[in-house]
Write a protein that binds this DNA or RNA. Structure first.
Lengths: 345, 345
DNA sequence: CCAGAAACTTTACACGGGGAAAATATAAGG
DNA sequence: CCTTATATTTTCCCCGTGTAAAGTTTCTGG
């Protein structure tokens, strides 16, 4: 038997035999109508196919139940993990996530922000693009909406709520570890277009100096297509290894994708980085990319607490939404990283 | 100087000095008003901050300019590449993508479909979940919207538009290649919960028989958490290598993530798969996962033409939307895979 | 059986725009 | 300069739902 299809609440109300406002209340909260009425509505609804118009409902409610999320791009499993954590947390809190990718393009990012405002989202989470991103975009969001920055923190916006990792802690952790078990590490960095990358680089330098070692950073030359992290890591280390450089050093990579490139370079030169080796090459990363256990050798790294970050970001955002969006003190939440010892260092 | 902020078109119309409907037309197509008027509006708009309400516009237009995309999950770079291709194609065609992840949960998938219908999206692209997914969901979408299945094709829905890879071609390609350069391959499969995986398995068997070899499939035992493809590949091959099995065979993996696990297992057993070796182990995958060039050894595989698939899916969907959504003949578009010869086979 | 409360219905308006027809301004033709 | 055709703009009503206020019914307890 085919379900009858009905498009508007008005038709539905005559079909069921209750008034339209009652239906409206039922959909917003079934508890708010008499039990017998709720039961009857529910019973009839089984026989009829009806979905309230998304736009009409959102247009009138004070609150849309929507959270906007801007992510730079999705071709990175770290971001997808983060997004998943956010999405699940939002779903649990009863919100719907509208995700927009900026694809490295500040214009698209700005458009996404506009879209969010025109959708009256209840709040926005933004993972900034990097240096190039349009800070004005964030400022406008910040003015108009409950707004939290996630994962990456523009140095120019210290007064905005932020949830991310404590890269000083995490980078310090692995730097210290590397210093403890082998020669003090060099730091395989990235072109300086990314706040986290820069923060890790600084953290490395600070930690090395604190331990009385000479910091050494490589791989910051700006190249085209710098966002192919693996290629970057491979290219830099390939060149170094070809010169016989660093072949018995520890190499701390700015992130796991770069480290995967470095591992590849090592393998090309017949080098097997490993924690076992007394004085040999070691390679370590940062992030605990899902593939780390499967590289050869498996990659020692620091895990970011992605789930906690996603959850905390949503939770802080919800708190701001409820709190009537008072300026107040910005809240900065930094989560510790955890060492993941594997074979490579 | 702060821009004046205005919320509704009505206020804007008095601020600018044209009627509201004229503004409406201007926003839909600036060409549709007199040049001088358009210029004036544009000039005023620079001084005023105004964004049309997303919901109000969508609610009234015949067409929402929205395309709904359902993806099973994002923790797989293949899907993210596909999504990106779709998103870019949609953007070029002037549509906005609303993406929803089903997170392996048929209920969420059904909710996503509902959402799309309640948003009156102009069309929907769905990457099916696998066997477990609720086919009813697809049928309902199919009835009500221009609808195209992408990447994975439920055997029970042969009469729906579909865009994906020709796995018989692609799997045949690499199977033949492997047969040509070394011992006939075994097939490292997956638990049979995924249409593509099954199709590749069948294609492998058919190809082997055609070439007069005995097909041999391993790894189909149903395990928990089967979606951790790498772990699955590693576990199966680990067990085999421990028994001394397959150490000088070719291993064709159902996809690259499984292959990465297999590579890992090989490395644990001191095996170095490679095309160079005369009679040794070879490992090949399928999909051209972005990390293939960086594994050690780099992974030989078959690339799916993801960009073309994404573009074609959007293009077909747009065609159906314009065509007034006539049932007509379903169109099945299959793209060829391309061999990517690297070191591992 | 009745008063009062609770639940519900009716009515009316709001939301922020789209779209068709009517009205006006502009251009073309004589 | 006037008429007519055409390009623009305005007037008016519509979309599908939320929400408040006022009126009506049903339930509760005595």
């Amino acid at each position: 038997m085919k379900k009858q299809k009905i498009d508007t609440m008005k038709e539905l109300s005559v079909a069921i035999g209750v008034s339209r406002p009652t239906l409206s209340r039922y959909f917003q909260d079934p508890q708010s109508v008499r039990r017998s009425t709720a039961a009857r509505i529910q019973r009839e609804l089984e026989k009829i196919e009806y979905v309230p118009n998304f736009f009409a409902t959102r247009m009138n409610r004070k609150t849309t139940g929507l959270i906007g999320v801007i992510i730079p791009y999705l071709n990175d499993l770290f971001f997808t993990k983060l997004l998943q954590a956010i999405e699940i947390a939002a779903m649990d809190a009863g919100f719907t996530v509208i995700m927009q990718c900026s694809h490295f393009d500040p214009d698209i990012e700005a458009r996404a922000a506009q879209t969010f405002m025109s959708m009256s989202v209840d709040g926005a989470l933004v993972v900034p693009l990097g240096n190039q991103s349009d800070l004005k975009t964030y400022e406008r969001l910040q003015e108009r909406l409950p707004f939290v920055l996630v994962d990456s923190r523009p140095t120019t916006m210290p007064n905005v709520d932020f949830v991310g990792s404590d890269h000083w802690q995490s980078t310090g952790l692995i730097t210290e570890y590397l210093c403890r078990v082998g020669p003090p590490p060099i730091f395989l960095a990235m072109p300086r277009v990314n706040f986290n990358a820069m923060e890790r680089e600084h953290a490395y330098i600070e930690c090395m100096e604190r331990l009385g070692h000479e910091p050494e950073v490589v791989g910051t030359e700006l190249i085209e297509d710098f966002w192919y992290f693996e290629e970057h890591g491979e290219a830099v280390m390939n060149a170094a290894f070809a010169r016989g450089q660093y072949i018995d050093r520890s190499v701390l990579c700015v992130n796991d994708r770069v480290a995967i490139g470095a591992l590849r370079a090592a393998s090309r030169h017949g080098l097997v980085p490993g924690r076992g080796a007394k004085g040999g090459l070691r390679i370590a990363g940062h992030d605990d990319y899902p593939l780390c256990p499967f590289t050869a050798p498996s990659l020692t790294t620091v895990a970011q607490n992605v789930d906690a970050i996603g959850k905390a970001a949503v939770s802080r955002l919800v708190q701001k939404m409820r709190g009537g969006f008072a300026p107040g003190q910005p809240e900065i939440q930094l989560f510790d990283g955890a060492l993941k010892l594997r074979e490579s260092a």
